[in-house]
């Protein structure tokens, strides 16, 4: 069995009295695209932020490529490429300066060559001397990918990468994610079920901070009925949860 690239054990985050992520555990192997599914506020972003080292967990832990996110945070972070929900950019930098900056900061030796390569990979070579403030939204999204990929991390964490861009670009992004999933471990969150169905090898459904279901999209569907969509799967699970709560 190949080593798990993402190993999450009883990961929990409390904000005051509110539990945002509640004892979440899962594994992700190399070459696997894992979809984090759930409505807004389900704890997807918080989970990802803990895995990227942005938020410290309240309880439990996780390992990225074998490095504990709390005890060995810097090494864990080195192995993650992260694209937050809203692409963070420096508007007054050019594309090249921006990617180069992140390449250097993440310890790339041949940072300039890496930056150019990754800019080519996301099809921004023609715009590489353009100021980021003058880029379209879709281009910014691609720039976000470039930033996440520049240090060639084994683990990619993408927070709602398809939100707010036009349908043609959504398809592009899905293709990119599948492409990347061949060699890397990709954890990507979405609240659009069909997207997960098309892109992921495995989905994890989060609801109110807890994992309510996980497995291959086809398996999950089979549990309900053969021709069900993930949407129906989700609704039935969430509905059952609600029923159980009451």
């Amino acid at each position: 069995m190949t080593k798990a690239m993402i190993e999450v054990t009883r990961l929990t985050k409390r904000f005051g009295d509110r539990i945002a992520v509640d004892h979440v555990s899962f594994l992700a192997k190399p070459g696997e695209v894992v979809g984090l599914l759930g409505p807004n506020g389900a704890g997807k972003t918080t989970t990802m932020r803990m895995l990227t080292g942005f938020l410290p967990p309240s309880e439990g832990g996780a390992k990225i490529a074998g490095h504990d996110i709390a005890a060995d945070s810097l090494n864990a972070r080195r192995n993650v490429g992260y694209l937050p929900e809203r692409v963070p950019v420096y508007p007054d930098m050019t594309v090249r300066e921006y990617v180069f900056f992140w390449a250097r900061l993440r310890g790339q030796r041949d940072a300039r060559a890496r930056a150019d390569a990754v800019i080519a990979q996301v099809n921004l070579s023609e715009r590489r001397d353009t100021l980021i403030r003058n880029l379209s939204k879709g281009m910014r999204q691609r720039l976000g990918f470039a930033q996440a990929l520049v240090h060639d991390p084994p683990v990619l964490i993408l927070d709602e990468p398809t939100i707010g861009i036009d349908p043609r670009q959504v398809i592009e992004v899905r293709d990119t994610v599948r492409e990347l999933g061949r060699t890397k471990t990709v954890l990507f969150s979405t609240h659009i079920l069909s997207e997960a169905e098309h892109t992921c090898d495995r989905v994890i459904i989060l609801h109110q901070g807890r994992i309510v279901a996980q497995g291959q999209p086809s398996d999950l569907k089979r549990k309900l009925r053969p021709d069900a969509t993930l949407e129906e799967v989700f609704l039935s699970i969430v509905g059952a949860e609600r029923g159980a709560d009451k």
């Binding site: 942005f54 972070r77 080195r78 993650v80 992260y82 950019v89 993440r106």
Partner: peptide, 14 residues
């Protein structure tokens, strides 16, 4: 404001 703080704090940097 730009969200780059999140990237900085998830980069392998103290």
């Amino acid at each position: 404001r730009e969200g780059t703080m999140e990237l900085l704090l998830t980069a392998p940097v103290r």
